[in-house]
Design a protein around this nucleic acid. Sequence first.
DNA 1: TATAAGGTTTACCGATCGGTAAACTATATA
DNA 2: TATATAGTTTACCGATCGGTAAACCTTATA
Lengths: 197, 197
Amino acid sequence: MYRSVNLYQIMRPTKRDELVQKALKVFYQYGFHATGMDMLATETGISKTSIYKHFRTKEDLILAVLRLRDEHFRNWLYRRMEELADSPRQQLIAMFDALEEWFNEIDYKGCMFIKASSEYQEASHPIHKQSADHKRMLERHITQLAENAGLTNPDVLARQLLLLKEGAIVTAHLGHTENPAKDAKASAIDLLNLHSK
Amino acid sequence: MYRSVNLYQIMRPTKRDELVQKALKVFYQYGFHATGMDMLATETGISKTSIYKHFRTKEDLILAVLRLRDEHFRNWLYRRMEELADSPRQQLIAMFDALEEWFNEIDYKGCMFIKASSEYQEASHPIHKQSADHKRMLERHITQLAENAGLTNPDVLARQLLLLKEGAIVTAHLGHTENPAKDAKASAIDLLNLHSK
DNA sequence: TATAAGGTTTACCGATCGGTAAACTATATA
DNA sequence: TATATAGTTTACCGATCGGTAAACCTTATA
């Protein structure tokens, strides 16, 4: 019995994952508070009862959604940076080309973690904390790239590049500026040159 | 009669303004969707019926709140930049010192307009549009300062400085980085030097 | 003193909020 | 065939959502 249960869960986590995947789209498009569980059941085609079989609360579901989003986004960004450039230095610059591609998607609605932390504001809230963790992991990766590129003060430079990234993300969503990714990229190139030995 | 009505409205717009002022604090602290009208009535001490005498809908109230916030914030930032530095060039740098003061306030919860645009995502939504207008007005002012400072490409530089500002604002709220205002300021100084003749 | 405007309280509206109970169906293994 | 699991539908829970109706109080002017 135990064997069959475990095998089933290992081999077919499909429905649960399908739910998280669909919920991600809905939360991203409409926001967290604005998305009710009834609407979520309708949009995903999965009954509310089934949803609550998988997740104790709406908050738990959101945390799972953010986990998936973190995995998807970091994988995509890191891969795209590698595809667009060879050297670590050029990859840091290519981050802003990748961002521009993202901004130009028709359904672009900003960064899910900025939104999450802004709807769940207290720093102690699990959703806020998990959003901060995502940013921390990005920072670690970019810092490593800056080190590999042999740049001076790789940690400071990484934080500065990420400030440009976050600024471009919210500016692209506000929509009052033509091409924030391009402006950010130009700044990034300048900063990189200044941090070269 | 008409005279008395008008005089009354001109001389004592107090209650309405008091409502907007208090609603601003509540919306800023708890978010827009998360703040119900009953809670708002309780927190402001103004009955729901009275609120709806002044504003037809919750959305109208939010628009009034954002108008007040725009006025407060821009006045505060511009004044603080002037207090902290004399030359236009130094004032541009001082923007990040002013931001650091803001970030260190105990009730700091990020930028109200970023939050508003992220809870009302469609670019056509009045709340989203008004948030974008705020950013546009900031851009105009910073561009003017860059021109007065005699810097090359004042418009590009202004947009880049504002990318750093927005990035610092969301990073300070996420709370995963020590002192984003300091990082942003260092970048700003570098960019300013590169744009000097 | 009559009147009008701004404000109040109390109560209510239908809809939706997050979440649950119960009874049922389909599938896959023992 | 018996059993366990994942999933379903229907109905419901108390609370809160944005918004309104009606009756009353207060204050300042005509």
